[in-house]
Design a binder for these strands. Structure first.
Lengths: 145, 145
DNA sequence: TAAATTCCCACTAAACTTGTAGGAATGTTA
DNA sequence: TAACATTCCTACAAGTTTAGTGGGAATTTA
């Protein structure tokens, strides 16, 4: 039961865009270099974020990406659901599931509890939280404000 | 991020063995019929439980399996870890991981929280709990004691 | 026009999932 | 002892997912 690189990389991309957001466009090449991820693979992952409107793209030379809204508006859960699909531990719990035995399934209750616990964690961390952790770790050397 | 059939079936097998534990051996064929799982596939899953000593086998005609210890001694977490491997949502968190960036990785803290939440759920439900839920649902028609 | 960049689509190797299949080993029973 | 029932062991395989690679079109800037 693992989160795939797609989801993990997507979270790192959003964090990278939030950290390096200075009004200018950020190129895939730079993110890939900083995060040590294949450029081509990152392209595909950012494309997902782009289609969902989580990032804004600018094409052409000097183009790149920006985070679309305030980092506090993006939870890790939103990003994971977008890239990984549902975070339900079993398909029975997904919307539109056709499980007939659900009513008399003891194990399903465990999976439901698990689902709740997972959502509770990932929906209560925003990209802004991750940014703050990083800033703290780096020390408060940023006197620019 | 799904639990595979292997893990889910293993939990159902343990529950089935606990529910039908009347001193006699329980055949794979019967479990497979009750749980609607392929016999041959179940064989392999039970083999894992058997090697770990979670169930005891009796070979030959009239043979089968029994749950080895009290159902209260088996948590869902134990069964899942045995069949699925570590329930860590990322490899970095697994024992013997060689992740160098762990010290400066903000996202890892999220995965760690997630890991804790997952373990907290699955380690706090035993097979006995599942049995009890089933008995309650069926109504207290069992006056044999 | 040349260069830089996003965008789009096709392909692929490797691993994992979810089984099937066949038969050997072991024990019971007629 | 022979037939039968059952676990045990191992190999195979189709389908899906993962984690990319690769080529080039479209768009924008210098």
């Amino acid at each position: 039961m693992k989160i795939s690189t797609k989801g993990r990389y997507a979270v790192r991309v959003m964090l990278d865009l939030a950290l390096n957001n200075n009004g200018e466009c950020i190129k895939v090449k730079d993110i890939a270099a900083r995060q040590d991820i294949s450029e081509k693979y990152l392209e595909q992952i950012i494309a997902i974020l782009n289609k969902a409107g989580y990032v804004k793209s600018v094409r052409g030379a000097q183009g790149g990406y920006r985070i679309a809204r305030d980092p506090a508006e993006y939870t890790v859960g939103m990003i994971l659901r977008l890239t990984e699909g549902s975070m339900a531990p079993v398909a029975c719990l997904e919307d539109g599931s056709e499980c007939e035995q659900c009513d008399t399934c003891e194990t399903l209750e465990v999976w439901r509890d698990l689902y709740r616990a997972i959502n509770s964690v990932i929906d209560n961390v925003t990209v802004a939280d991750l940014v703050e952790k990083r800033r703290r770790r780096e020390g408060s050397f940023d006197y620019s404000i």
